[in-house]
């Protein structure tokens, strides 16, 4: 299998809720530029919104990095959400529909995993959380 080649990357620092909007608008604009379908543009923006909000709520600050990937003749968007907050002790539980320590719906992480094509979450003790999610363009 070909390894996807990263093209260009952009980073949005996430510190407060206004940054959540900036990040998701940046993602939608990128998806639109790459010719993603309208529903897929909305999915990319929604995923970014969920990951960025989790950073603000649970980790205080962090960043969202967006990279365009090229694999063969198709393009994708890779979202990396990174923070150095308290981390997630039980990843499996955090990925269950309805699990929330913030008295919310508990759908951000499981929902994001459902709407993206690739989803990887890591939280080594003491190192915060890093989530990598990719959405590929439909051919």
């Amino acid at each position: 299998m070909q390894v996807p080649a990263p093209l260009d990357a952009m980073v949005q620092a996430i510190r407060r809720d206004a940054d959540v909007i900036s990040a998701r608008q940046m993602g939608r604009a990128l998806a639109e530029d790459l010719g993603f379908s309208r529903p897929d543009q909305a999915l990319v923006a929604t995923a970014i919104s969920e990951l960025a909000r989790n950073i603000v709520v649970y980790a205080d600050h962090g960043e969202i990095e967006l990279t365009t990937l090229q694999q063969g003749d198709r393009q994708g968007i890779r979202i990396i959400a990174r923070d150095h907050g308290p981390g997630i002790a039980d990843l499996e539980r955090a990925l269950c529909d309805g699990f929330s320590t913030g008295n919310s719906l508990g759908l951000g992480l499981p929902g994001t995993r459902r709407i993206m094509d690739e989803f990887d979450i890591r939280s080594p003790p003491g190192e915060g959380v890093t989530i990598i999610a990719v959405k590929w363009q439909l051919r």
Binding site: P39, Q41, L43, T46, E50, D97, P110, G111, T112, R114
Partner: peptide
Amino acid sequence: PDVAISMVLLGL
């Protein structure tokens, strides 16, 4: 419509 699709997939 796009918003509705994302909401359904997200589980909202």
